[in-house]
Design a protein around this nucleic acid. Structure first.
Length: 521
RNA sequence: GGGCCAAUAGCUCAGUAGGUAGAGCAACGCCCUUUUAAGGCGUGGGUCGUUGGUUCGAACCCAACUUGGCUCACCA
């Protein structure tokens, strides 16, 4: 077997080693959709996807399940949701019984789920979704809940190893939503040793006995629920955030509780958090602003989004940037691609690693040709020259191949989103139009612009050096210094004091369009 | 109080099969006969947090310590 160099392959090896040969390996991920699912949550999903792909590459048959823990309680109203007061009246109910105030879906949880389910295919991730509310409410886990009740004292013993305030016999491994109010403000009074639970609704002070096999109101507490599902689904691998992976955290207790259900803990690792950089003041916990996978995909192509996660070890923190770092990330990816296709030298040590990162970054099959690579920054300028017309920019490349067009189109959309929403002011410009108000110039500046207009129209449209000379000649002709002419020309062309290097800029825009603008003066 | 992670060039970091320390940016220099914003080439720069240990050999493994961050001990 070849030496695994990528962390995803190393974990695949570990899963096979620890779980032994199996006909089917189950890899799991999941979350409570109690608010907008953000890019930090996505790290878990893509981490599993990368390991799933690594296992499949080794010839394993793999099931990738994603659990929507949507029978959890609505504990607080996120600040980014509309109709806060209305939502507040649904606190303590399961999130599937809370209305979706954004109008997207049939309930609150579903709205948050849909955001993710719609975006994941764009980055080539196709899990099998499990909806826990539906499962619990249809009494799918009645036997498991009964078992947990039977093992209650063992569970308490495990949990008490880490608690400061120990649980006593009045604690139960299950929670009950009131059949009267749907809220979880209930107290379990007794269990009949089978499937009957007697509880009191504390709001209404009503007592009722329900059957776990025929009513939808009971569920397991998280620290019991998680290990129960490891056994139910036969989970071999499931990573978790560091809040779970601390000593005494839920992974720690679950690995003990799972034995009571007759199973073993999956292979796991701890992934670190993601931070966000360069969104100005837009992101802060107080405003409730969160960055979702969809937000990231507006600025980063699917491949580059995958690349950021595939090229970073999961237990290190990193930030996703919306500032100038975007240029660097694109450049890094382009270099990685060039190395993959042998267009850039790379030493032996790094080659295999880079190859693997590139493969894992692809949404689907690895393309047979590299992208039509244009530096991101240059692409931003081209788009601005064309007023954001993506098709015009694409059709200006005569040597682009058929299978490169769609990838370039995606990159154009991202570049345009970045330049218009996140780039520094210095990067932005718009070419002057026919109906724009004319810029006021001094007599000498006007003379220089006129001279330049003439000289550009006589230029061959190709020789950049010749064009540069013509700019300096124009300044001399008008009797001003080049450093005076440049700002004047920039003002005329793009309404700013400075801009992209002028000669190349004029060449890129084309002499006809430049002359048309200059000739107004 | 327990646990986890980080500390490497001015800055941001890479460096998990122990084998002479790397990249990008910044700086400096040169070229493109001359831009403030997209070019090219080159140069300098590090006691790898500290102290011990293992080893022929340690940024890497072990122990202790220093500093910073995170997390659990509520809930999920």
């Amino acid at each position: 077997m070849e030496q695994s160099v990528h962390w995803a392959d190393i974990y695949a090896d570990k899963i096979i080693r620890e779980k032994g040969p199996k006909e089917l390996y189950t890899c799991a991920s999941g979350i409570t959709p109690s608010g907008t699912v953000h890019i930090g949550n996505f790290r878990e999903i893509i981490s599993v996807d990368l390991v799933v792909r690594a296992l499949r590459r080794k010839g394993c048959n793999v099931r990738f399940i994603y659990s929507w823990d949507n029978y959890d309680v609505f504990r607080k109203v996120p600040k980014n949701m509309p109709e806060q007061e209305k939502l507040a009246t649904f606190l303590r109910k399961p999130i599937t019984l809370v209305p979706d105030t954004t109008g997207r879906a049939e309930n609150y949880a579903r709205g948050n789920e849909l955001d993710v389910e719609e975006k994941l295919p764009l980055v080539g991730i196709y899990p099998e979704y499990l909806y826990q509310a539906q499962r619990y409410r249809s009494s799918l886990y009645a036997e498991q809940m009964k078992l947990a009740l039977e093992k209650k004292s063992e569970i308490i013993e495990i949990l008490n190893q880490y608690r400061t305030t120990p649980l006593d016999d009045s604690w139960w491994p299950i929670a009950v939503f009131s059949s009267f109010t749907d809220k979880d403000n209930t107290t379990i009074l007794s269990w009949d040793g089978e499937y009957g639970i007697t509880y009191r609704d504390n709001d209404l002070d009503k007592v009722e006995t329900i059957d776990m096999r025929t009513t939808p109101y009971t569920k397991l507490h998280w620290r019991v629920d998680w290990p129960m599902r490891w056994v139910y689904e036969g989970v071999d691998f499931e990573p978790a955030g560091k809040d779970h992976h601390s000593q005494g955290g839920s992974f720690d207790t679950s690995r003990q509780v799972v034995e009571l259900f007759g199973g073993h803990a999956p292979v796991s690792f701890q992934y670190d958090f993601i931070s966000i950089k360069g969104r100005g003041g837009k992101i802060s916990s107080s405003s409730g602003e969160v960055v979702s996978l969809g937000d990231v995909l507006e600025v980063y192509t699917p491949e580059i989004t995958r690349y950021m996660f595939a090229s970073t070890r999961p237990n290190t923190e990193f930030s996703i940037s919306f500032d100038l770092d975007v240029l660097k990330i694109y450049e890094d990816y382009d270099n990685c691609e060039r190395r993959y296709f042998g267009l850039l030298p790379v030493n032996d040590k790094k080659r295999e690693q880079e190859r693997r990162i590139y493969e894992l970054s692809q949404v689907g099959e690895v393309p047979s040709t590299p992208s039509y690579q244009i530096p991101f920054r240059h692409l931003c300028n081209l788009l601005q020259i064309n007023g954001g017309d993506i098709e015009a920019v694409i059709s200006s490349f005569t040597d682009i191949k058929e299978d490169q067009v769609e990838r370039l189109r995606t990159r154009c959309r991202c570049a345009w989103a970045w330049i218009t929403q996140f780039s520094p002011e210095d990067f932005r410009f718009a070419l002057a139009g026919d109906n724009d108000e004319k810029i006021s110039l001094t007599e000498a500046e006007n003379k220089g612009v006129k001279a330049l207009c003439k000289k550009v129209s006589e230029w061959d449209g190709e020789d950049e050096k010749d064009l540069a000379q013509r700019i300096y000649d124009s300044a001399a002709e008008a009797g001003i210094e080049p450093t005076e002419l440049f700002p004047a020309v920039y003002r005329v062309l793009i309404g700013k004091e400075k801009g992209p290097k002028l000669a190349l800029f004029i060449k890129t825009v084309g002499k006809e369009r430049i002359c048309k603008i200059l000739s107004r003066y």
